[in-house]
């Protein structure tokens, strides 16, 4: 298989398969998780404004007092990498074209030099959080194969995308193909790795906010 055929595969049947596995996986995972149900809470709720599942959905974006100073690498690295990743994904012209094809929605892109800059910052942030994962005792202790796998499959699309746009090291065709293949790997593994938190984080926050919000504690 040469690079053009790889690209044709990646854009064609490869992407179809990846999207299919992703959708099937998400459907399966979300069903198997949320069908477990929970018992109704019979305790008389204490109604306090600001304490609910919906509040916790957004409140958890901000660090609790003092935590930013205590764990600044985790927080700042995490913010930069998440926001950078989403910006590059959602505001790069070529990506918007793809999203438009899938959903019919489109919006104005950021200029390419700005996207380039954000990509570099994102890559640096991801490397920093990786080094921190290896060095910080708690993270190293908690981390296993799944954590490093998740990091790798998230890092590769950003890296290959950047190299492709910049025409570095390999031909554009090869890099574009590798970029799309790396995205496909990401999609396929997403439902079955900790990257599934992209979906489960919202119900998790809601459950926590709901449970504690009923007690009148805005968590």
């Amino acid at each position: 298989m040469n690079e053009f055929q790889l690209l044709a595969f990646a854009r064609g049947i490869g992407f179809q398969i990846a999207v299919a596995i992703f959708l099937m996986g998400m459907m399966l995972r979300l069903t198997e998780i949320y069908s477990l149900g929970r018992k109704p809470n019979l305790a008389e709720p204490r109604l306090v404004s600001g304490a609910s599942g919906w509040h916790t959905l957004y409140r958890r974006f901000a660090p609790p007092p003092g935590m930013l100073q205590t764990a600044y690498i985790t927080y700042i690295g995490g913010y930069v990498f998440h926001i950078g990743f989403m910006m590059v994904f959602l505001l790069f012209a070529q990506h918007i074209k793809m999203i438009q094809e899938l959903t019919g929605l489109s919006w104005p892109p950021l200029p390419a030099p700005i996207i380039d800059f954000i990509t570099v910052v994102t890559l640096v942030a991801m490397l920093v959080v990786l080094v921190d994962r290896v060095r910080a005792p708690v993270k190293r202790f908690l981390s296993g194969f799944g954590d490093y796998l998740a990091w790798t499959i998230t890092f590769l699309p950003v890296l290959t995308g950047y190299l492709a746009v910049k025409h570095l090291f390999l031909s554009y065709t090869t890099l574009l193909a590798l970029h799309i293949v790396s995205v496909e790997i990401f999609l396929v593994l997403l439902p079955f790795t900790k990257i599934a938190h992209t979906a489960t984080v919202w119900p998790s926050r809601w459950f926590n906010g709901n449970t504690n919000g009923r007690k009148g504690v805005p968590v």
Binding site: L23, M24, R29, T31, E101
Partner: peptide, 27 residues
């Protein structure tokens, strides 16, 4: 466009149904 996949949602419906079936069995 090169950044677009050729008919990425070709198997989407089937995949969702398969996911729902397996997920339903798990449930």
């Amino acid at each position: 466009a090169l950044s677009q996949s050729a008919n990425p949602l070709q198997h989407a419906k089937g995949a969702l149904v398969a996911g729902a079936v397996v997920g339903g069995a798990m449930a």
